[in-house]
C-alpha cells in the first residue's frame, strides 16, 4: 500500500520583518522578505507522518509567483519527495474560490489520496482554501486536525479534530483534504544532505492554468469576493504604566473592581 500525499504550502510576508514605510508611516509589507506560511510547517510534518504510517510519496504544491519556488525548496529540504509550482499570470486577483479550484485540479492531476494543508495563512488567514479544495473535488475533509491515523486497509484516514467543546475522532474516505491545527505538529529537522540537494539540484515541476485546463476559471473575473478597501488598524491607546510596587497594582485592581 502506498499513498500519494500532496501538501499545500504558501509564501507569505515575514511577520517579524514587516517595517514601517518612512514616507507614509504605514506598514510596509511589500519589502518584507517572503517565507513559508508558519502553519504550513505543521502541514508538512503531518504529511510526513502519514507517509511514515502507510508509505508513499509527499509532494509539496504551491500556487504563486515564480519566486515561490523557494518555499518548495524548503519543503523538499524538510523531506518532501517532489514539488509542483503552479504559476500563471492568469491567477492574479484570485480569491479563495479559484485558488482552491487550482489546487483541487492540481491534486487531481497528481492523483493524490490525501491533500494536507495548514490551518490558515498569516496574511489573509481565511482558512477557506482546504474546505474549498475538498468541495471542488467532492472529496471528504478533516479540519482542525491534531493527530492523524492512516487506515489503508479501510481506504480511510482517521483524525482527531478539535471541535466546539471537545475533541472527536473522525474517519474519512479517500481522497481526503486535511487541514492541520497550527502548533500541533512539531517539524522534524531538515537533513543537511537534503538541504544541499534542495538548494542546488532540485527543480520543481511547473504547471500553468492551461496545463490544468482551467484558463477560463481563474483570476479576478471568477472570484466572487473582492477587497473593497484596507485600513491600517491603529493600536488601542493604553497608559503603558509599569509600576514597581505590587501595592499600586492591588490598588488599581480594587478600583476597577469597585
Amino acid at each position: 500500500m502506498s499513498w500519494t500525499i500532496a501538501v499545500g504550502v504558501k509564501q507569505v510576508p515575514d511577520d517579524d520583518e514587516v517595517g514601517i514605510d518612512p514616507d507614509t508611516g504605514r506598514l510596509d509589507r511589500a519589502s518584507a522578505p517572503a517565507v513559508m506560511n508558519p502553519p504550513d510547517r505543521d502541514a508538512l510534518e503531518a504529511a510526513l507522518t502519514i507517509r511514515d504510517q502507510v508509505g508513499g510519496e509527499v509532494i509539496a504544491v504551491t500556487m504563486g509567483p515564480p519566486n515561490a519556488k523557494t518555499v518548495l525548496e524548503q519543503a523538499v529540504a524538510m523531506g518532501c519527495d517532489d514539488a509542483v509550482l503552479v504559476t500563471d499570470r492568469a491567477f492574479a486577483g484570485s480569491d479563495t474560490w479559484p485558488t482552491s479550484l487550482t489546487l483541487a485540479r492540481t491534486a487531481e492531476a497528481l492523483e493524490a489520496d490525501v491533500v494536507v494543508c495548514g490551518e490558515e495563512t498569516t496574511d489573509s488567514s481565511t482558512g477557506q482554501v482546504p474546505p474549498g479544495i475538498a468541495a471542488h473535488n467532492g472529496w471528504a475533509q478533516l479540519t482542525y486536525v491534531e493527530g492523524v491515523d492512516a487506515r489503508p486497509e479501510e481506504d480511510r484516514l482517521a483524525a482527531r479534530r478539535d471541535v466546539e467543546g471537545g475533541h472527536e475522532l473522525v474517519a474519512a474516505d479517500l481522497p481526503v483534504v486535511v487541514a492541520v491545527a497550527y502548533g500541533e505538529f512539531d517539524t522534524r529537522p531538515a537533513g543537511l544532505h537534503r538541504k544541499i540537494y534542495a538548494e542546488n539540484d532540485f527543480e520543481p515541476t511547473q504547471w500553468t492554468a492551461e496545463d490544468l485546463e482551467i484558463k477560463e476559471e481563474v483570476g479576478l473575473d471568477v472570484s466572487p469576493t473582492s477587497v473593497g478597501g484596507m485600513e491600517t488598524v491603529d493600536p488601542v491607546d493604553r497608559r503603558g504604566e509599569v509600576v514597581d510596587d505590587i501595592d499600586d497594582l492591588a490598588e488599581v485592581l480594587t478600583e476597577v473592581n469597585a
Binding site: 479563495t96 488567514s125 477557506q128 474546505p131 468541495a135 471541535v163
Partner: peptide, 21 residues
Amino acid sequence: HTGRDFAGRVAVPAHAGLTAD
C-alpha cells in the same frame, strides 16, 4: 471550527462569495 469547516462546501458549489472571520 464548525462554521468555518462547512461554509466552503456551500460557497464553492453555489459560487457564492465567502468572507472569512
